[in-house]
Nucleic acid binder design. Sequence first.
DNA 1: CCGCATCCCCAAAGATACTG
DNA 2: CAGTATCTTTGGGGATGCGG
Lengths: 215, 215
Amino acid sequence: MARYTGRMSKRYDQYCPVAHALGLVGERWSLLIVRELLQGPKRYTDLAASLPGIGTNILAARLKELETCGLVTKHRLDPPAASMVYELTPYGLELKSVMRSLALWGLRSIGPPTDEEDFAPGWLYGALDTVFAPSAPAGSFEFRIGSEVAGIVDGEAQRGPIEEPDVVLEAGVEAFYWLFVERRWKGVKVTGERELLEQLLDAASAPAPAAPALV
Amino acid sequence: MARYTGRMSKRYDQYCPVAHALGLVGERWSLLIVRELLQGPKRYTDLAASLPGIGTNILAARLKELETCGLVTKHRLDPPAASMVYELTPYGLELKSVMRSLALWGLRSIGPPTDEEDFAPGWLYGALDTVFAPSAPAGSFEFRIGSEVAGIVDGEAQRGPIEEPDVVLEAGVEAFYWLFVERRWKGVKVTGERELLEQLLDAASAPAPAAPALV
DNA sequence: CCGCATCCCCAAAGATACTG
DNA sequence: CAGTATCTTTGGGGATGCGG
């Protein structure tokens, strides 16, 4: 694995994996940039647009840091559209498990959404991909939440409608919150195998499974 | 888009569980304070001592923030020793899974330790408790790493020697690193069931298990 | 437009001295 | 021991500029 020994902007002088990790991605905005790039390669201005308040100099600085740390690479797109895109390296992609832990922890205190418009396009796919897909049971799920449509097929998140899904969930974002965080089935419409959906919820609620051999 | 006109120095203006989580523990030093408190209640000065370079004002500020966020509580110890201790709340304790993810990710790029003295007392117990115990197979393990002794019994980390352990590992901190991170069995002494130790390593290397029902 | 670099200003971090 | 007070330094936010 690539080891970064160079100068990190602000680091902690401790030999500790957590302190080291925070030296790489612990600065303000860094993990949110990673969150955006987990949805796929993005351009500079698209990143800036999805991170309200970041300030262009900070975004440039963070991207440069992430690049020198080996978490992000910069390419020029193929000829037709000759713009630059930023993309996670394999090691950067592995931050998905960190994002999942953080998201599951943060969900428990974030409270219900108040405004449908707080949601950026693609949020549903992102949530399914990083939070729910990693522990999803076999089967195919389609979610129609607000104006977003995405799903999970055999443990992999997919954008858009799913072909012949085993179960379909339709809800507004607030009902989605109440179901997935608070486990209240209110204001949701389920078509198909509801138990499969419950399995999905159960699996995500227990991100740190009991020791397998202890069961 | 950004409809928050007031003054919001810290925090990100997004309805996103990751952004919310980072608003709670994303500031500099916060997660390292949590790391210390995961080992049990600690006094102010002990925290300061185990976080070299933090500055007393920052420590006080972070503790106050963590307290108002409901992640930390402050008690006065029972009469014999009438000092204050800081302790994680149940919600704060649940950051252990986040620490585990971060540590497993950071380990892959931290590189081998160069100096035995970089290690604070109790580091072995901390590592076993947050990183390895959550996915440990049944059985009892004893680790004698450098001058530290700790172990895992049926998925729970314990300080000090273990009674009749199934397997004992003796090594220096550098050999410990090579074994647990790079999987090189060099300079370590194993007594007892070596396969059990391998199971422990395998379980921790795969923190995001494949979807159970897919197997 | 896109991808930054520069400048200004203020808020937060660091260092250290000090106090109940 | 457990912080507060004060001062300096650094970094972030916002606006603007500017070459490609």
